[in-house]
Simulated scan of single mutants.
Amino acid sequence: MKKIVFILLWTSLQLCAQNSPNIAFENNSATAKIFIELPEFKNINLRDIAISPKYDEIFFTLDAPKNAFRTILTSKKVNGQWTAFSIASFSGNYHDIEPAFSPDGKKLFFASKRPINVEKTPKKDYDIWFVTKENGVWKHPTRLPETINSDQNEYYPSITNDGAIYFTAERPDAKGKEDIYKSEFKDGSYQTPVSLGTGVNTKTYEYNAYVSPDESFIIFGSYGRKGSLGRGDLYISFRKNAVWQDAIHLGNFVNSNQIDYCPFVTFDKKYFFFTSEKSTIQPAYKNLSMEKLKAILNDGSNGTSKIYYLSFDNLLKSLSLE
């Protein structure tokens, strides 16, 4: 079954590669808009996104139904035009998700189930890896050390200006089911990860944390909190005097009654991105034609996960109004 899914994805990607993508950034998007449309993948999930500091590369994950196969796609801006979407140079063989640039743009981190060392069997859990660019191509996947990775899931990396990494993990010292951890980078080595304080982590699930490179704020997903709108909502916490303050729910400006996750803010802080499984499909219709049915199921928010974006300033303004 997985082989069939991969063949279908590969065939569609060849068709997709023939067309230049329509990628545009609206300067003052007041409401969340779908960012990427893949006509060849109308009912395939898209999740998580990374945009380079110079706005010249984009990476995101294509996720087959029931997570049968996950791979990272990319597009590069060349002479003012975006290249056709293609499988990232380091991806396409194993489950790869959640790309994240270092602030200097020299490394690209991601989570993967690929084998380690000389092993041939993929891992059952996600580890965090990174690649570097050589002659314009991202190469040499390198697994982070055992200080970070374990035999449990580690995923959704986010990198600070001083090289520290924030990530989600399942660990014995977690405050809840999953916690958000930070590992400082000192003298060329990652330090023992520490679970963030109770302003962020709780007894339930916390995951998918984007941290600003200067560590002034963190946006993350959480499930099971009081006042949650759905199967997972997004929250923001601001850092004051080296302490993460109590997280603020992003409200229905972003959150829905479905899962909302995978936050990202561009390095210039102009745009906020997130993934959502929100749906505009209604429970009842009158005089439903085949054409209308096609439009309802194929266009817009139909319950498959899609990547949305809006003005980051407008998002912050919405918090002060609630």
Rank of each mutant, 00 (worst) to 15 (best):
V5E: 15
S12V: 01
L13A: 03
L13M: 15
C16S: 10
S20I: 07
S20L: 15
P21Q: 06
N22H: 11
F25M: 12
S29R: 15
A30V: 09
A32T: 05
K33W: 05
I44M: 10
I44S: 06
R47E: 15
R47Q: 15
R47A: 13
S52E: 05
P53F: 09
F59L: 06
T61Q: 02
T61V: 07
D63E: 12
A68Q: 12
A68M: 11
K76S: 13
V78C: 06
G80Y: 13
G80P: 09
A84T: 10
S86V: 09
S86I: 04
F90C: 05
S91I: 02
S91C: 08
S91D: 07
Y94I: 02
H95C: 00
H95E: 08
D96W: 00
I97M: 14
P99G: 04
A111L: 06
R114G: 00
P115N: 11
N117V: 09
K120Y: 02
D125Y: 09
D125H: 13
Y126F: 15
Y126I: 06
D127N: 14
F130H: 10
V131E: 01
V131D: 01
E134M: 09
N135M: 09
N135E: 14
W138Y: 13
K139C: 07
K139R: 14
L144T: 10
Q152F: 13
E154H: 05
P157G: 08
S158H: 06
T160F: 08
T160A: 11
N161C: 02
N161K: 12
A164Q: 03
A164C: 10
Y166C: 02
G176E: 11
I180L: 13
S183V: 08
F185L: 14
Q191W: 03
V194C: 05
T198Q: 12
V200T: 01
K203V: 12
Y205T: 08
E206K: 10
Y207M: 07
N208P: 01
Y210M: 07
S212G: 03
D214F: 04
F217I: 03
F217W: 04
F220K: 01
G221S: 12
Y223M: 11
G227H: 08
S228G: 15
R231E: 14
G232H: 06
K240C: 04
A242T: 10
V243E: 14
W244M: 04
D246I: 01
D246A: 06
I248V: 15
H249W: 07
L250H: 07
G251C: 08
N252R: 12
N252D: 15
Q258M: 10
I259M: 13
T266Q: 11
D268A: 11
Y271R: 04
Y271K: 09
F273P: 01
T275L: 01
T275V: 02
E277I: 01
I281W: 07
K286E: 14
N287H: 12
L288G: 10
M290D: 13
M290I: 12
E291K: 13
K292H: 10
A295L: 05
L297G: 00
D299R: 06
G300Q: 11
G303D: 13
S305K: 05
L310D: 02
L310I: 10
N314A: 03
S318I: 03
L321P: 00
